[in-house]
Design a protein around this nucleic acid. Structure first.
Lengths: 225, 225
DNA sequence: TAAAAGCAAGAGCACTGCTCTCGTTTCGGT
DNA sequence: ACCGAAACGAGAGCAGTGCTCTTGCTTTTA
């Protein structure tokens, strides 16, 4: 029998997620409507609550899935480079993979890196998937250090404890200066993408792609040479 | 008579903006409710439409005001430094003024730099006020160049036209490399603040303030020394 | 086979943005 | 000083939202 009920439940759950994702992609996360999902699915709105306790829970699920996809994309971009010690190349690859993904599915990027939806607070379940893409960046600075690179970034005393905890939690033996380097690169990368995607470059440059390339290149030169 | 109607209109408009701002500050831009504003004001909801054509128009007005306040704050922070050729100091001052403002009124920061509200597209009226805070940064790189500093940032050919247009539009005689430097600093700054404010640092560091200081310092060392 | 659990439907609540109509109040021109 | 026009606030109403509760039906479990 394989459990008819169980099978139908899985199908419906998947279908709800599919429709919700399409809706988010079309109208943005803020406009996700449970009732519309229900209509598209040929159900009544209250039935959705058998599958997701609330709109926020559905959103959370979408967020987790998006983090997972982003993680997979960045991992693939990084590991596609055969020469593991081409650090500049790896930085380029992962940077561009994130931007390309963001441009392809802006609503998804917005879902993760834009305004935390109205009264919504990210639950614990998201932190695992969320760290997948950052782990790729961590891997880069780790490999650099293993290859004998030294970083000269100054790390204030107040940050040393944070970095020590981070080192322990992630089992990452990078030194403070190298971690600092990663943080600067991370902030710069996400800043460049957010400025572009949220429209702050509109009356500034006409070819945001070229600007992004240049920003990545400046960092590659400075941090990953 | 001084126009009773005109006076009342000005008062009501101001009051609507005040209440709406308080609401945004409390519940976030996505939860701004015209009906609640009307209730707080002792009016019926439809009356609000005598003053603002739509919820989006009210939001736009709030956004413009916020850009103006941010602009004033950053300008003040920069011009508070008496030694105009202390570029690192000026960079520090403007960076921290933005972050402090963001921490004091996160909903306001979110309004400007988070997700462009659901189906909302920023109208032209915002681009003037929006460039006020960036002009301070532009002023910094301009002064650096005037003081004889040279930048070594590489600017790809594709960006040269954008930068030429920018130079003309803003009447800013900075060379390409120096403009590039400003862009990197800008992206890094906004990235650092957004990561913190939108919760992406939650399981990363416990003292985001220290991380921010360090990021600013790294850039000060590299770009504004 | 009977009880238990899972399910979809439907009605309903309290909201939302927005529109339209209807009396009233204020303003500008004669 | 008057009178038409314009501006105004109130109120009802429409279409939509998230979410809850009850009611019957179906599948699963014991």
């Amino acid at each position: 029998m394989a459990g008819k009920r169980e099978r139908v439940r899985a199908e419906n759950t998947a279908e709800i997620l599919r429709l919700a994702r399409a809706q988010v992609e079309r109208d943005g996360a803020g406009n996700l409507s449970l009732r519309e999902v229900a209509r598209d699915l040929g159900m009544v709105s209250s039935a959705i609550y058998r599958y997701f306790a609330s709109r926020d829970e559905l959103l959370t699920r979408l967020i987790i899935d998006s983090y997972d996809r982003l993680g997979a994309i960045v991992e693939a971009a990084d590991s596609a480079l055969s020469s593991r010690d081409d650090f500049r190349g790896r930085w380029r690859a992962m940077s561009h993979s994130i931007r390309n993904w963001a441009l392809e599915s802006p609503a998804e990027y917005t879902l993760l890196f834009g305004t935390p939806v109205p009264g919504y607070a990210a639950p614990q379940d998201t932190i695992g998937p969320a760290s997948r893409y950052t782990n790729v960046l961590v891997g880069l600075v780790l490999d650099m250090e293993a290859a004998g690179h030294t970083a000269s970034e100054v790390v204030p005393a107040a940050l040393r404890r944070d970095f020590a905890a981070l080192r322990q939690r992630l089992a990452v033996p990078a030194n403070d200066a190298m971690l600092m380097r990663g943080m600067v690169a991370w902030a710069n990368l996400m800043g460049a993408i957010s400025l572009e995607l949220f429209g702050h470059l509109h009356n500034v440059v006409d070819t945001p792609g070229a600007l992004f390339d240049a920003i990545v290149e400046v960092q590659a030169e400075r941090l990953f040479a």
